[in-house]
Measured scan of single mutants.
Amino acid sequence: MSIQHFRVALIPFFAAFCLPVFAHPETLVKVKDAEDQLGARVGYIELDLNSGKILESFRPEERFPMMSTFKVLLCGAVLSRVDAGQEQLGRRIHYSQNDLVEYSPVTEKHLTDGMTVRELCSAAITMSDNTAANLLLTTIGGPKELTAFLHNMGDHVTRLDRWEPELNEAIPNDERDTTMPAAMATTLRKLLTGELLTLASRQQLIDWMEADKVAGPLLRSALPAGWFIADKSGAGERGSRGIIAALGPDGKPSRIVVIYTTGSQATMDERNRQIAEIGASLIKHW
Rank of each mutant, 00 (worst) to 15 (best):
S2P: 09
S2G: 07
S2F: 11
L10Q: 06
L10I: 11
P12W: 12
A15Q: 08
A15R: 02
C18T: 14
L19Y: 15
V21Y: 05
V21I: 07
F22S: 12
H24F: 10
L28E: 06
V31F: 03
V31T: 06
V31A: 08
A34H: 03
E35C: 05
D36C: 14
Q37V: 15
A40G: 14
V42T: 06
G43R: 00
L49Q: 05
E56K: 12
F58L: 11
P60I: 12
P60C: 12
E62N: 08
M66H: 05
M67D: 11
T69F: 01
F70Q: 05
F70A: 10
L73N: 05
L73M: 11
R81H: 10
V82R: 07
A84I: 11
A84P: 03
R91N: 08
R92N: 09
H94K: 14
H94D: 11
S96I: 10
D99W: 07
D99K: 08
L100V: 09
L100G: 03
Y103G: 06
S104P: 02
V106K: 07
T107V: 08
E108N: 10
K109G: 14
H110N: 08
T116E: 11
T116R: 06
V117W: 01
A123C: 08
T126M: 09
M127H: 08
M127S: 09
M127N: 08
M127Y: 11
D129G: 00
D129M: 00
N130S: 05
L136Y: 00
L136H: 01
T139S: 12
T139H: 09
G142C: 04
E145C: 12
L150V: 12
N152Q: 15
M153G: 08
G154T: 05
D155T: 01
D155R: 00
R159D: 06
L160V: 14
L160Q: 07
D161G: 03
R162K: 07
R162M: 06
R162E: 05
W163L: 11
E166Y: 15
A170T: 08
A170Y: 12
I171K: 14
P172Y: 11
P172M: 12
N173R: 14
T179P: 00
M180Y: 14
P181Y: 00
M184D: 00
T186S: 13
K190Y: 12
L197N: 05
L197Q: 05
G216E: 07
L218E: 02
L219V: 10
R220G: 04
S221E: 10
I229A: 05
A230I: 07
A230S: 06
D231F: 03
K232V: 00
S233V: 03
E237R: 13
G242S: 07
I244E: 01
D250P: 09
K252V: 14
V257R: 00
I259M: 08
I259W: 03
Y260H: 01
S264G: 10
S264V: 05
Q265R: 13
Q265D: 12
A266L: 14
A266H: 10
T267E: 13
M268N: 07
E270L: 10
E270A: 12
R273G: 14
A276R: 13
S281L: 12
K284V: 10
W286V: 02
